[in-house]
Design a protein around this nucleic acid. Sequence first.
DNA 1: GACTATAGGTGTACGCCGTACACTTGTCAA
DNA 2: TTGACAAGTGTACGGCGTACACCTATAGTC
Lengths: 243, 243
Amino acid sequence: MTEKTNTSRRRLSRPLVLQAAVALADEDGLEGFSMRRLAQELGVVPMALYKHVANKDELLDGMVDIVFGEIDSPSIDGDWRSAMRRRAISARAALKRHSWAIGLMEIRSPGPANLRNHNAVMGCLREGGFSFETAIHAYSVQDAYIYGFAQQEKTLGFQTPGDAGEAAQRRAQSIGAFDDYPYLAEIATKLPGSGYDNAVEFAWGLDLILDGLDRRRTPDGNPTVASSAADPAPTRPGRPALT
Amino acid sequence: MTEKTNTSRRRLSRPLVLQAAVALADEDGLEGFSMRRLAQELGVVPMALYKHVANKDELLDGMVDIVFGEIDSPSIDGDWRSAMRRRAISARAALKRHSWAIGLMEIRSPGPANLRNHNAVMGCLREGGFSFETAIHAYSVQDAYIYGFAQQEKTLGFQTPGDAGEAAQRRAQSIGAFDDYPYLAEIATKLPGSGYDNAVEFAWGLDLILDGLDRRRTPDGNPTVASSAADPAPTRPGRPALT
DNA sequence: GACTATAGGTGTACGCCGTACACTTGTCAA
DNA sequence: TTGACAAGTGTACGGCGTACACCTATAGTC
């Protein structure tokens, strides 16, 4: 089970390499992930990989785009709010499945799935009645929250309600910090019984943000950045008029 | 200017090592940062560092806690909202100064400055009238936003309004994606003239979140998690009663 | 079926990395 | 002056990404 478990025989291909790479990172995290480990997993010598990917960075780009491909692309028609909510929740799920990707989603140079998703988000907001400026803001605040939350969730590393409090308690006690930090102590003692759940936590903040966006969506909202009069969304099917 | 510019002579110390490490990471980023480079910068052989830090991980812990120390700790008395706003803005500033720390703030095991800050935030919320459950939510959504925004800002890498549009344009064009992604194209063409500013952007989302928190702060707010009746904050000066 | 071009797998090697372990040396208390 | 001990040194090991030259198995032609 440790050697060449995967994929019958040699004769690699780029998709096969990418897929094996994602699987390996899912298992071992990004620290355990190396070109040499991946090659071994594929039953091949390390340098063989370089016939299919330019280098490790480019490999990571491809892996990240696979994760992007697992995120719901909102449709342009329909309720912007529920579409955004669905996308955010599916993004959190994807990042939970592939938590090695969390630091990378925004760093690697964007692949096709990334571009498609981002275009769809922006389109959904524009067609949902957001001005250009406000759509940019809305985009920014949502993505910051999604990726930031995923990062936190990865760190704290508890998923079941039971674990949550234990983790907090272990942490605080290991520092011996209860006396100096009464409010942290409150967390350590109260969280265990509170039925804390990361999915609920994520939704709470997400809905707070979506509420706020809805409230700022109206065309008479505050244009915080220089903007001209009416700004219609790009013409739908093809390429918009771009001066 | 490349060799032993720093700190006159040998005779290291832990704070000196940490400080030099932060400086080096500020300059070269985390990729360029290695024990060997740091030792060289200090005019010392690599193994000398290990007399003052246990290993690279522990060194990173110390570096991160220095960054935490540069973040405003909110005071417990006074307006919770302005205190939270100040903390968030100072956190963004610190992460901008030390952008290498962005992926690390939540991963490394917490140091004293970290604990102090987190305790102060929780205290500020509790004394500001948030129920325990809501304070946890408030905490989570704020930190996710702050760290997520910092991550995005680091990636996009533009700071001056001028750069912003150029970066977007360069990005989109390098992919040749204009035709397929009209809404991304809109960003690429409109952002340059819009006076985009990361500080404004950050504040927009931050205020959206703080508005939402204020709206949910009232004691009759929705206790999403199991909670008993009245839950007073921990008694102020010393350690609260913890059953 | 034999021949050959070439895509794809191999072997070796280099310079980086973190750090274990045994050593020398500089400093300060007695 | 001495000697203990903290601090800096030198050497070495295994792992990393990957450059470069090499071999080989397949596929298209006759």
